[in-house]
């Protein structure tokens, strides 16, 4: 560490020395020599001590609870997010990136009612995000467009088992049940004539229709899924981890030193998550059988896009549920 030239001349003898030299050749450390190197070491120490603790804080169920908005695309997640977190009804298009905001449900008691709301894109190609975020979530809202549910019930229901599985195994690991709200959004579009106020109050009959439709369709589809998936015979395994041909460079060294405890092994453990947690025993599918998940049902109304006028009670059910988180 005293002189970079010494280290550089000793390179290519053993991998350890090579790592130091490549560190020093890094553009960050090249110029201000010794002090910069010390600074970098110091910073990396700071980084490594801070990062896990930060992770723990978010991951733990203490502090601000994290609520996830998941569900198929075009079901109104971003609209719900904007309305809840920003208090305004805006137009939206298909999301590309997840967004998250911490806000308080009750302005009088901001500290205790604060929640972190995360809106996750619903496009199937971005399914990866759902899984990554589910680990830190203490509650999940599965948003379903009640009108689209009739058209492609199968595709919508098919998104549920992976979510349920991840949630179930996460809550089994932490010992705390995770809450899941199955939300029929855009329920106001079922009533005729369509109301034009933002988050209109739903009539009892509309609310009932939406709730019934959601639960009957989803239960039917989940039952069908169970029939085809719950059988253990003839299951196809996933491919194993592809052996890399000897990690070179810093990453390889890191792995060699610390026993290959990279991100991959953690993922491997999660892949073993079993869908049996979801399917329960024999017979038809029952929501109570899903282990470690408290399932609730809800209906929300989020008016037409260009709505003006008095706010209704269309979102009260969601707010109430969020308060209970």
């Amino acid at each position: 560490m005293a002189s970079p030239r010494n280290a550089a001349s000793g390179a290519r003898v053993t991998p350890e020395v090579e790592s130091i030299s490549s560190l020093l050749l890094h553009p960050l450390l090249q110029d201000p020599k010794f002090v910069a190197a010390v600074l970098a070491v110091f910073l990396s120490v700071v980084l490594f001590t801070c990062k896990p603790s930060a992770k723990r804080r978010v991951g733990g169920r203490s502090g601000t609870p994290t609520v996830l908005l998941v569900g198929p695309a075009d079901s109104g997640k971003t609209a719900l997010f904007a309305k809840l977190a920003h208090g305004s009804r805006t137009e939206t298009h298909t999301s590309i990136t997840p967004s998250s905001t911490t806000f308080s449900l009750d302005s009088e008691d901001p500290a205790r009612t604060a929640i972190r709301l995360v809106d996750i894109p619903g496009h199937p190609r971005l399914r990866d995000e759902v899984k990554r975020n589910l680990k830190t979530a203490s509650a999940v809202v599965f948003v379903v467009d009640i009108q689209a549910l009739l058209r492609n019930a199968g595709a919508i229901a098919e998104e549920l088992p992976p979510i349920l599985t991840t949630v179930a195994s996460a809550s089994l690991a932490s010992g705390q049940p995770t809450k899941l709200l199955l939300l029929a959004s855009k329920a106001d579009l079922l009533s005729r004539p369509s109301p034009t106020t933002p988050s209109p109050t739903l009539s009892a009959s509309t609310r009932q229709t939406a709730a019934d439709r959601l639960s009957s369709v989803l239960t039917r589809e989940m039952d069908r899924l169970k029939q085809s998936r719950a059988s253990t015979g003839g299951r196809i395994e996933g491919i194993g981890r592809v052996q890399s041909s000897g990690g070179t460079g810093l990453a390889g060294l890191w792995k060699r030193f610390f026993g290959g405890r990279g991100g991959g092994d953690v993922d491997d453990a999660e892949l073993e998550e079993d869908e049996t947690l979801v399917w329960g025993g024999r017979g038809t599918f029952r929501w109570e059988d899903v282990e470690g998940v408290e399932i609730a049902w809800g209906v929300s109304a989020l008016g037409a896009v260009k709505a003006v006028g008095e706010e209704g009670e269309g979102l009260d059910e969601v707010r109430e549920w969020l308060r209970s988180v």
């Binding site: 994290t66 977190a85 920003h86 967004s99 998250s100 905001t101 911490t102 308080s104 500290a111």
Partner: peptide
């Protein structure tokens, strides 16, 4: 900033940022 806030810290601006912009 409010949309990508990963920490659970409650900020004053969070709720109103969208309205302020509009």
């Amino acid at each position: 900033d409010t949309l990508s806030a990963t920490s659970g810290v409650l900020t004053e601006a969070a709720g109103s940022a969208l309205r302020v912009l509009q």
